[in-house]
Every structure is written in C-alpha cells, then in structure tokens.
Design a protein around this nucleic acid. Structure first.
Length: 273
DNA sequence: CACGAGACCTGTTCGC
DNA sequence: TGCGAACAGGTCTCGT
C-alpha cells in the first residue's frame, strides 16, 4: 500500500495522534509479542523481543517508505510493503485478523503492526545505516534540484517509470505517485531516462513534489480495504483509470505493464521522448 | 547495465 | 452461484 505520503501520514499519526492512532512519544515498550516470525527482519525473534522490551520511544519519523522509531537503546525500522499498517490504540483491544507484531506500552496503549499479505518487515538495529544506507535522496531534499536530477538521469538507460520506482534513485515514490507525476509532467512512462532534457528534469521534479505534497495533504490514498482515511484517490488523474477519459484531453487512459507493474498514462498528453 | 520472471502472501474482483 | 485467473500501494534474487 504505502508510498511516501501514506507512510508520512502514519508516522505523523503515531507522533501526534490522529487517523485512529494515539500519540506514543515518550512511552516505554513493556512487552513485545511476535505473532508471525518472518515479520522480524533482524535480529532473530528472541533477541528482538529481549532488546526492544524496556526501551523508551523517543522519536518517530519517516525515511523513504520506512517508519523509523528512535528508541532509548537503538532504532526500529518498519517497512509496510504492500499491505502493512502501524497503529497505536488503547490497550483494551481484541487481537484482530492479520495482526503480526504487537508492542505493549507503559501508557496503557498497544502499538500494532498489522499486515495482511505478510510482506512487511521490522528491523531493530543500533546502526540506522544498516537498514537505509541504500536509499537515494528524499524527493523534498533541498539538495535535489532540476539540475541535480538531470545529472542523475543523463547517464541512465532505464525507462523513467522504472527509475522513479528505484528506491536507490529517489526514496519514497511508488506506483501511484510515479504514474501521477509522469502525467503532470507530460512524460511517457517508457521514455528512456537519458532522453530527459534539463528543462524536462525541472518539470519532472516539480511534478513529483506536487503529487507527493497533494498526497500528504490528503493523508494519502486509500484504494481498498487495506488503508483507510486518506482521500488522494479522489485526485487520481491516471492511476486505475484505464479506459476512462483523460481529464485534460478526453483521450482514453491507457494501461500497460512496465517492469511488471500496472502503468497508466494518457497517450496524447504524455510524450515519448 | 537493464529487463523479465519468479518468489514472498492474502484477499478481492472479473470473466466464463 | 461457482470457480479459476488476474490483479493489488513493494522489493529481492536469479537468469539472460
């Protein structure tokens, strides 16, 4: 499910409360319950439970599509992959279907990792680089400019859509926001990255930031049963609109597969460079 | 280096 | 109505 705006929304909810979550900053983890062992990426489950129990939650942030939770003794990183969710609720709560890991808190709350498809993973580490050193720049990083994006693109032969999904290129963009950003930019998803000119790179960066910011403003997108509360799905121009008329020129939106991902675009508004 | 296929998983939707 | 296929917001690994 979650791309940058959804992960940002979830992290903010845990930090400040909202979207069905309570704020948990300052709480101490009293007990860890691992219900699906594979949800723990590292270290092993016994060590994970032992080391995380007793830790105090000091910070909650986002890096790429990871939620980073700063503890008194290290870091928790949570990647929600396709169907994960992380919420904090009052302790009086019955176990729900697909709950994979729960953290009992001193504040009479429970932090719950729920993940239908079991793709999500949680890491505990003392060294954040171990988990996220492979990530590229944040799309809103001030160091990222039209010029620097052009520099990153000019020697790459990949299709632009594939590159936008590459987390070591930029961190946080997923299938929805890649399609939406390329539509705003007027760039065909199959355009080879090194065909993007400096001017196009400038336009693409603005488009990426525009759709991500709108997504954040709408609390993310909620498409089906997985993630609720977001409203960005009402602003889709192309994603899941195959066959529907383009909002700009009325040409039917096309759907193709790019790198085994459903890809949506307007064949008239988006130019293959 | 770039791409496609397959794996990891469960649930919903679509076509016959 | 039933049933199998296709598809889903992600990422890793392997073969070409």
């Amino acid at each position: 499910m979650p791309e940058l705006p959804e992960v940002e929304t979830i992290a903010r909810s845990l930090r400040e409360g909202g979207r069905g979550s309570e704020a948990i900053l300052g709480a101490t983890i009293t007990k860890v319950n691992v219900l699906w062992k594979k949800s723990i990426a590292c270290p092993g489950v016994p060590e994970f439970e032992r080391r995380v129990a007793g830790a105090t939650i000091r910070s909650i942030n986002r890096r790429g599509k990871y939620i980073s939770i700063g503890l008194s003794c290290g870091w928790l990183f949570v990647h929600l992959r396709m169907s994960g969710d992380l919420t904090a609720v009052n302790a009086v709560r019955i176990l729900n279907a697909h709950d994979r890991v729960t953290f009992d808190l001193s504040s009479q709350q429970v932090l719950v990792f729920n993940d239908t498809r079991k793709f999500g993973r949680i890491w505990f580490t003392e060294d954040p680089a171990l988990v996220c050193s492979h990530l590229g720049l944040e799309p809103f990083d001030e160091a990222l400019t039209g010029d620097s994006l052009y520099d990153l693109l000019k020697s790459r032969k990949k299709r632009i859509k594939t590159l936008l999904l590459d987390q070591s290129f930029l961190a946080g963009i997923g299938n929805i926001y890649a399609d939406e950003a390329l539509f705003i930019a007027g760039i065909h998803p199959l355009t080879q990255a090194d065909h993007v000119t400096p001017l196009l790179a400038e336009i693409l960066l603005k488009s990426i930031r525009q759709v991500l910011q709108l997504g954040i403003d709408r609390n993310g997108a909620s498409i089906d049963w997985v993630y609720r509360g977001g409203q960005f799905q009402n602003d889709f121009n192309v994603y899941q609109r195959g066959g529907d008329p383009c909002r700009s020129c009325a040409t039917p939106i096309e759907r193709i597969m790019v790198g085994q991902r459903g890809t949506h675009f307007c064949p008239k508004c988006q130019i293959l460079f």
